[in-house]
């Protein structure tokens, strides 16, 4: 698609690819990776096991999580994040938003619900490494201990002064955060600075 050649990450000015690695360096405590161009569809609708839930399941192939903070699906594939009593994100690392959106619109026809493409409204990056939790704790007031925030959970919070959506992908630990696109540069610079004491590896996107 011609569009793939035209698109640009909000961090393109940092030239991250030039020093990106495949894995975290042995003496670094944290690793940062940008995850641009992910699909994020914001779903609004009534909670519960009714028509909305089955329409979303039909279109996405995923159960609609009912508890705020719960996630269904696979970290690397398609996921549904429950972010509020009537708000979800349908995230996907591969397929394009448009076909998903069409499927959702079809299934949701006639319902009081909303599916809006917000893929470009948000920007994702991942924090991993043995000191990822310590790094994130500098920016986020939530308790990130595995007892309080285990892998497979999500939450809305702050990354210092930027609103964020946070997921813990695994207990290695690895976190994925979404900030609004215009905050990408701030979030990246903030985390790079705060991570200095641990050593920061930049992983390829």
């Amino acid at each position: 698609m011609v569009e793939d050649f035209l698109r640009q990450s909000p961090l393109s000015h940092l030239g991250l690819a030039t020093h990106a690695r495949a894995e975290i360096a042995a003496d670094d405590g944290v690793a940062l990776a940008e995850r641009p161009f992910r699909t994020v569809i914001t779903l609004r609708g009534p909670g519960g096991e009714g028509a909305f839930a089955s329409a979303v399941e039909q279109a996405s192939g995923l159960k609609l999580p009912q508890e705020v903070g719960a996630i269904t699906g696979e970290a690397e594939g398609r996921q549904l994040l429950c972010l509020g009593p009537d708000e979800w994100w349908l995230c996907d690392g591969n397929s394009d938003a448009e076909s998903l959106l069409v499927a959702l619109e079809d299934e949701l026809a006639g319902q009081f619900a909303s599916a809006v493409d917000t893929s470009d409204n948000w920007f994702a990056l991942e924090i991993s490494g043995p000191q990822a939790t310590d790094l994130l704790a500098k920016a986020c007031p939530l308790d990130l201990h595995p007892r309080s925030f285990p892998a497979g959970r999500c939450a809305r919070s702050l990354l210092s002064k930027a609103p964020m959506t946070l997921q813990k992908l695994d207990e290695s630990p690895r976190f994925r955060i979404h900030v609004r696109r215009s905050f990408a540069d701030y979030a990246w610079r903030w985390l790079s600075d705060a991570g200095r004491e641990y050593g920061v590896s930049v992983l390829s996107a």
């Binding site: 215009s182 905050f183 540069d185 701030y186 610079r189």
Partner: peptide, 18 residues
């Protein structure tokens, strides 16, 4: 803390900022 100088407050930029 580190909320000084360039990190005092988020500087939001548009895709055409560069």
């Amino acid at each position: 803390g580190r909320d000084v100088d360039g990190l005092l407050d988020p500087e939001r930029t548009t895709p055409m900022h560069g």
